[in-house]
Design a protein around this nucleic acid. Structure first.
Lengths: 199, 199, 199, 199
DNA sequence: TATGAATGAGTTTTCATTCAT
DNA sequence: TATGAATGAAAACTCATTCAT
């Protein structure tokens, strides 16, 4: 009847997801009651379970119905040098985690909740590392592709641990700069001068 | 009452801590009830609150009354080369996390529970990085100390993320080897040939 | 709207009744949700309440819109002797309860739900007993009509309890044979040799 | 501290059972909420689940922790004749079901709730039939033992169905008298004059 | 020092029913 | 005649914590 009824209806499910995402990220999955989600979303508590059979299904919806950060990361890289690209992609990744952090944080924090979440956490990590490696491989001054991938994983580990687990965002920037320098050098160096796997 | 009452008490208290540590690591803090801890520890439920005023105090006891892994890591490094030491320390760290993983996992997963835990998580990370840097600094073929610290943080990030968050222990070893090679090369290379912080 | 709308309605209504009958019989009235009935009937949940004002009305529709088993029982008896007729009617009754058991089971199990159901349960019992007595009264070798009615009630009690309450259908057949023999003897015997109601 | 503390403590569990028994019998298992049981028992709702892990466990406790009616039935039989004993035992059984009916009613009504209850229902029936047969076998003027057992099952079926399922207690007495006469005649008659199992 | 019953607020979830379309 | 999202009261069950002994 009313003009916005149609919009409101299709929006409520999405609204529940967004509210839950925010609360899960802030307080954790277990510490957030479905009643609070419903209250803060402005919907009756029954509606949460009309759209999501269980609380865990709501968590899975948050985790699965979110876009992959790849696009953001990829578009952020336009530098020529490895160093420039690294700087761009780390900045983009940190920003993305910061801006859209909820789902990411949830995935890593609640990995223990069920195997599906744990799998998704591993996927997100692999995806991010692949994107970073991809971005770096476009640089002019690049070394061995295998080393690029290994380096990408190191970088992603550092950023994820900092932001997702340790929650430090201010002081992280400085240390990330040092890391970028180190990794850039590593990737642009002529390569190992000693045989691998020998002590 | 009896002469060994004191001993009995600490034994039971310790048993509660160990049981809680295991259950928190397996199922998470929120998902583990104090009743279950008491049951699996074989003590009456009242005893948990006789020894620990609140459930959070029990968590803090687990986190604080655990030895630092530094000693283990340090003693594990006796190689001469950077690569050898890296290999030893990564292996020791992985083993330590594996063997005594509970407290570590809890610290990182439950960092959101209270500021005290979050602080402890940051401490553990810094401590591990410092130890790794310390171990590496004893190598013969070492470069810049600042770079060593940055590299140590990268390595620790990678291992922590793998084992604590992603929970992958089998496949991790292979990728750790590649990482060790890369970082060892990085640290034994002549250093940056280009100016820092310039794109 | 369309010409066959009327047909479609009664079809869906009938489908709801049949599905509800099955589910009530399997799981009980309380343990069956209207949403499940709608789901298993393949109709939208709102339709259940379009056709039946309340859930109880749906139960009453099941109970009231079912044909009486008398016809089946009556037609099943063509033997000459009491024993033959008993055997036929018990077999028919068991088969009827088995085949069309849902409504019968519901009536007896949910007798407590409302007085209307309780009344219907008593009616069904009386009806069955009357039919059995009627069938038996056609036999050649019959005794006192009052005793026939009492015997019919005994037989019906036994069969109903076995199938409706105890749910035993396989082993019941054997015991029913013994019962048939006993009751047949009872009805064809010369009658009481001692005065009634005297200890 | 107080004199009745000890008594009260050990009594609460029993009080919950008794209250639940009454409510289940009056309104049915599903239609009785645990909150109501707690309220009417005068205990906090949590205590119900402290003593009984689930609502079904409470039902099972009611069903399993009740004495068997055999003793009552057996002691009620002191007559000499089959008729006298039958009258006594039927009266005792009806009284027992009436007095202590809750558990019995529950067992038969809620047989669908779980296999354990269904099994118990069958057990109670078999037990009652065995007791009645046992009582009858002490009479002077008895016929075939196999027929006694079959007759006992018939009698028990009739009484159970009347009181437990149909809930009729007043009018039942009269019809029971007719049944008693019939069965007494049957058991004291010289036995079948025709071969069994032949139409 | 220990015990285990007790407490009651809180949790997730269910569900008959309504209603705008 | 249908539809399916919406509603909110109530259900079963949990649990950290207390306390008399």
């Amino acid at each position: 009847m009313t003009a916005h009824a149609d919009t409101a209806r299709s929006t409520k499910r999405q609204h529940i997801i967004e509210t839950a995402e925010r609360l899960f990220a802030e307080h954790g999955y277990d510490a957030t009651s479905t009643a609070r989600i419903a209250h803060e979303a402005g919907v009756p508590s029954g509606l949460v379970f009309y759209h999501f059979a269980t609380k865990l299904d709501l968590l899975l919806a948050i985790v699965n119905e979110r876009p992959t950060p790849s696009a953001v990361l990829r578009s952020a890289s336009r530098g020529r040098s490895v160093r420039g690209r690294l700087r761009a992609v780390v900045s983009a990744m940190a920003g993305e985690l910061e801006h859209n952090r909820a789902a990411r944080i949830i995935v890593f924090r609640e990995a223990q909740a069920c195997p599906e979440i744990a799998t998704r956490a591993a996927e997100l990590f692999a995806e991010a590392a692949a994107t970073v490696a991809d971005v770096l491989s476009g640089a002019d001054d690049l070394a061995d592709p295998a080393r690029v991938r290994t380096a990408a994983e190191l970088v992603v580990s550092r950023v994820f641990l900092d932001i997702v687990v340790l929650g430090q965002t201010e002081s992280a920037a400085k240390r990330h700069a040092a890391m970028i320098d180190l990794v850039a050098d590593m990737l642009t160096s002529p390569g190992p001068r000693t045989a691998r796997n020998s002590a």
